[in-house]
Design a protein around this nucleic acid. Structure first.
Lengths: 232, 232
DNA sequence: GGCCCCGTATGACAGCCGTCATACCGTCCC
DNA sequence: GGGACGGTATGACGGCTGTCATACGGGGCC
């Protein structure tokens, strides 16, 4: 029971630096949450009561504006913290929605319990600060790209990032290992599904990628990198 | 000496929850850093050795891409943490540049000392995680706007934010209390100085704002809010 | 006081890309 | 197997806004 949870927490960055016994104690305070593909762990606006660490599956974190525009902020994989630090602020609400892209499993702690853990094991609080900072830096880079780069380059960067973080080797190249629609890519890169469709079509006809329904395989990463980084 | 530093730290969010004696101890570990207008506390790429808390003045945090495009990520005021969490990661580099917009003064701790403080006072680490999370959420909102909103709305939002965070009441309205050029606004909103100039000119001729060299005064905030929020 | 430079203003032009319309196709579900 | 639906493809059109050129004016520095 708890031992399998403890194993799930080994190697999770949030708990790096804890002894095994401490890890077991942390695991003992956790509850298991599962979400089928398409279901939400939590939605924006709900009371932020829990902190999650993803154990298996994949979770997309999205934000919706009052006008109804939805954007994808990131896609989390196993080991990632999410729902994170909103839950540490009393009475706050989740600012984002976390939705399973495929059947997913996470460990969860209430904000109160996580705060107690952090006071008991300061390294966990330090890790949390670091992790959020890394996420901030990643978002700063994407934000910078959005400000200064054309659409094609932004899509190239997004595809390369996803291939790096969630790629699986297949015979023809590296496949992005979860369902990814044109619309999803558009919501990550600040463009429209039409432009993404056009761009991927172009790349496909030149052999850079092969695509199918909600599938993308990167065949020639180096040419994609050239699109992403070329200083012209 | 240390007592004046201690006073400077009272009310700083990073150290919320510390007793006065503890605060004095924290202050004792700090060194004072000053930067004249236009000088940098640190630059992107330098070894991230120090954590700063701004005591007086104003600091803009910018990021430069390999192509040389510079964007402004935020403007910090007194009490704000900056250079923050990069310094907690061993051997890391600052991902951004922090430059004084006016003569500024900060307290600084080495990353090692700050880590020790966090282990001794876990609440400081928890505060740090919260603060970085708040900054992340703020950037997420701006990022969302950049993806979905037109330029005029983005500029309106940026001006309103600055007026709220760094506004000073004057007879004709609320003046943004530090030098702010068209170029600065462009680098905050992902557009060009030309478009900002055109937009502000339009607003000025309609009486929404008055402008001068690196000066912006918001005269009719409610009409600016309408531009920022109108669902049309 | 005068010069230089930075910041600003404004017009002309073009092109990236958003918007809308239409059609195709694979998948799922009865 | 057939229909419905969600995802994709592609064209036409237009406008927001980036790019470039030019000019002006106020501040600061010698």
């Amino acid at each position: 029971m708890t031992t399998s949870r403890t194993q799930a927490l080994a190697g999770v960055p949030l708990f790096g630096g804890l002894e095994e016994i401490e890890l077991a104690s942390v695991a003992g305070d956790a509850s298991v949450r599962r979400a089928a593909s398409g279901r939400a762990f939590f939605r924006a606006g709900e009371a932020a009561t829990r902190v999650y660490v993803l154990v298996a599956g994949r979770v997309k974190v999205t934000e919706v504006s009052p006008e109804g525009h939805e954007v994808i902020l990131r896609v989390n994989g196993p080991g990632d913290l999410f729902g994170g630090v909103a839950a540490l602020v009393d009475g706050s609400e989740y600012p984002v929605t976390a939705r399973a892209l495929e059947t997913s499993e996470a460990l969860a702690w209430s904000g109160q319990v996580m705060l107690a853990l952090m006071r008991r094991f300061p390294v966990v609080a330090i890790n949390a600060a670091r992790l959020v900072a890394l996420r901030l830096h990643a978002l700063q880079r994407v934000h910078h790209e959005l400000m200064t780069d054309r659409v094609e380059r932004r899509i190239a960067r997004a595809v390369l990032r996803l291939a790096r973080e969630a790629g699986r080797r297949v015979e023809s190249g590296v496949e992005i290992d979860f369902p990814l629609s044109r619309q999803d890519l558009a919501q990550m890169t600040g463009t429209t599904l039409f432009t993404v469709s056009r761009t991927l079509s172009g790349w496909q006809s030149e052999g850079l990628v092969t695509t199918a329904r909600r599938r993308v395989v990167v065949c020639q990463p180096e040419r994609l990198v050239r699109i992403a980084d070329d200083l012209s």
